[in-house]
Design a binder for these strands. Sequence first.
DNA 1: CCAACTTCCTTCGAAATCGAAGTCGAACTG
DNA 2: CAGTTCGACTTCGATTTCGAAGGAAGTTGG
Lengths: 402, 402
Amino acid sequence: MEVNALLYQVGACYLSGVRNSREDQPAALVRMVATGQAESRAELARLSGLAASSVSLRVEQLIGAGLFVEEGAGASRGGRRPRRIRLAREAGVFLVADLGAHHARLAAVDLGGALRATADLEFDIAVGPEGTLKAVIDSLRALTGEHGLRDVPIRGLAIGMPGPVDPATGQVVSPSRMPGWNDFPVREFAAELAGIPVLVENDANLMAVGEHRASWPDLDNIMVIKLGSGIGCGVIVDGRLHRGRGAAGDISHVRIRSEATVDCSCGHPDCLEAHASGAALAATLAAQGFTADSPSQIVDLVTDGVPQATAAVRNAGQLIGDVLTALVNFFNPDALVIGGSLSNAEPLVATIRGAIYQRCLPLATRNLEISASRSGRDASILGAGHLLLEQSDEWIDHALTR
Amino acid sequence: MEVNALLYQVGACYLSGVRNSREDQPAALVRMVATGQAESRAELARLSGLAASSVSLRVEQLIGAGLFVEEGAGASRGGRRPRRIRLAREAGVFLVADLGAHHARLAAVDLGGALRATADLEFDIAVGPEGTLKAVIDSLRALTGEHGLRDVPIRGLAIGMPGPVDPATGQVVSPSRMPGWNDFPVREFAAELAGIPVLVENDANLMAVGEHRASWPDLDNIMVIKLGSGIGCGVIVDGRLHRGRGAAGDISHVRIRSEATVDCSCGHPDCLEAHASGAALAATLAAQGFTADSPSQIVDLVTDGVPQATAAVRNAGQLIGDVLTALVNFFNPDALVIGGSLSNAEPLVATIRGAIYQRCLPLATRNLEISASRSGRDASILGAGHLLLEQSDEWIDHALTR
DNA sequence: CCAACTTCCTTCGAAATCGAAGTCGAACTG
DNA sequence: CAGTTCGACTTCGATTTCGAAGGAAGTTGG
C-alpha cells in the first residue's frame, strides 16, 4: 500500500508535466452528479454541452464501473420523466482532517460532500508534524474501519492547516505558533503514510470553498472571513479558489488606525490581528477580569449581555470593517461571508456590516451581500471534499479503464 | 452597414445564451499565432493538445480563408525546419479609442497587436457621450481610410473609458467628472454608429491587460496601478482580467492615515485620491507657487530637481504604498506594475516600492516583482487588442464558413 | 378519453478527430 | 561526407463524437 505513494500526490501531474487543457469528460460528468447539478442524462447533456448520445454512452460506462447507479425516476418537466442517476454509495469516500491549534476535526465524506463519519481529536500542534500527522492518519484509519466504510475505496485525503500553505509543494510556510512545521513536506509525508493522494490547504481557504459551493454556488466572486482565535480569509475568484503564491487572503497583518500601540507577533506594530483577533479580545477581557480562553467563551459573554464584552467585540468589528472596506472596493465581490466561531457574536457581524456600508463605494456595495456563515462549522470539511472532487480526474479515468 | 448593428455587441452571446463551454478551436489557433505563442503547425499542435493531423487540416482552412499565410521556414529544433505560419496582413484590424478627460488616443492595431495607424484627438469629455463618440468614430473612420487599411476588414472596436464600466451592459456607471455619461449605453450607441462589434472597458483595466500580455505573460496574478491625474488599478487574476461587478480595482477611495483632513469628491474624508493623485499633487504644488497642470509637468518638476515637487511626490508614494500593502497581502500577486504618466517620476516608484517591502509580509514579497510599466503609453491600446482578440470566436468562425 | 405536444433516451449513419505509420528535410556524428 | 537521428508534416484507416430520426413515456387541453 505504501508503494509508489509519492507518485500519488494530488496536483503533481499538473505541476510537472504538460497541462492537459482538454477537460476530462467522464470526470466532469461525475462532478456534475456528485454536486447535484445534474441527476439525469438529459441534464448532463445540457450542462456539459455534449451530445445526448455521447452522454448516454459515458453514463453506461460509469454505471458499469460502479460509480453511478440508476434509481427510480425524476420529476417530469412536461414530458417523459428522466431516469434518475445518483452516485453509488460504494463509489468512494474522501478523508478530511481540519487541524486547529489544539483540536482536529476528522471526517469521511462521500463524493457529493455528505458526511459519512466524523470524529474529533485533541492534540497540540506544537508537538510537530510527524507526531501530529501520524495521530491524525491513525484516527482516520480507525474511522474508516467503522461506519460501514470497509468496502468503500478511499479516493483522497485533504488536510486543512491553520497557516499558509504553498500550493506548489504542499508545505506549510512561515506559520506562526507552529514550531517545527515550517517548510515541512506535509503532503509528501502524509501521502507516504496514508498511501493515497493528499491535498494540503489552508483552513480559511477550505472554508471559503465550502461556503461557496454549499451556500453561494451561483456567485462568482466571494470572500470569506474566518474569525476565531486568529483572523483568516479565503477568496473565491471566478468560482475558483485564489491562492496567489500561497499567501493570498492574508488580512491579519494590515496596519490599522488606533490610539494605543500593540506589537504583533509578526514584528510590526498595530496589525489587525493584534487588535481584533479572538486572542486579542481574550487578552482585553482578561485584563478586565473576565476569563475567555476560547472564542466561543467570548461569544457566550456577549450573548450573556456583558457590556465590556460587547464593547470589545464592537471595537474589533469596526477595525475589521475598516480593513475590509479597502479590500471590498478593490476586489468588488458579490458576497462577503463571515464565519468562524466568533461570527456567532451578533454585534460583531453587525458592526462589520455597518462599517462597510458606510465607507465603501456605492458601486461596490450596491449588490454586495454581507452575511454570517451559512454552512456552519463543517464548511471546511465540505470545501475539502469539493477540492478533492475537482482533482479527481485521475482516479476516475482509472476506474473506467479497469 | 448599420443593419443589425445592435446584434454585434461583443459579449452579447455570452450573456444572453447558453455559455459555450467547449473552446472554439479555429479561434484558439488564430489566437496562438496572433500572440506569437506559435508559428508552425507543430507548435500549434503542442500548445493546443490537438492531433498534428487535425491542426494541419485547420491551418489549411485558415490559409484558405485568408487569415493565415505561410512564409518561409522557422528555426530547426534538431530536425526538419517548420513551415512558418503568420497572420495575413489582410486578416483584419481592430480599432481602439482610449479616452481621457481631454484627450483620446486612437489606433488601428492588427490582430497581433502591432500598431498599423495612430492618431490623437483633443476634446472635452464633459461635452457628453453622443458628441464625443461621434467625433471619435469619425476620426477612426478617417484613420482607416489611410495607411493602406482600405481593404482590411475591421474586426472590432474597443473604447477605453476613464471611469467604471459595467461589463454586463457596456455602460459607464457613476463616473466622476464625466457629466452626462452615467448609465449612458456606450456600447449600444457606438455599435450602432460604427456598425461593428464594440467592447467598452475601463482604461486601467485595458492597461493591465496590455502590461500583462506584453510584458508579463508568464505571470498569473498581477496588479497594475495607473497614476495620472487620477489613480486607477487593473487586476489580472489567473491570467484573466478581474472585473468583479464592474468596480473591481478601485483603490482611490480607500481611507488613509493623515494629519490634515481633505474631503474627496466622493463625499468621504481622506480618500487616497484626495491626497495622492496627480490632481491632488498639482493642487499642493500650486499652493506653493508652481504650475503643474498635467501629470507630466509634475514629472518635469521632479526631474528638474525641485525639492518641493520631490517631497510631494514622495509623500504621495508613501500613502499609495501604505494602501497597497494591504492589497498585496490580500491578493498576493506575482508582480505589481506601476504605470501612467506619473510613473516616470523615479522617487514615486521608489517610495512605493520601499513602503511595500517594509510593511508587507515576507511571504507576500519574497517573489514579488515591483516594476514601472514596461509597455509605455500604448499599453492600453495593446490591452484592448488582446481583449478583442479573446472575443473573436464569432467572426473567425464566420470567416471560415463563408 | 384521446389527440397533440414535450421531454427523455436510444439507434444508427455521417462527420470529425485521432494516432500510427510513413515521407520529407535538415542537423548532427564520427 | 555518408549514415543516423530528430523533428515537421501528411496520409489513411480506426475510433470517437455528433446529430437527425424515432421510440418511449410523460403532460396538457379540449
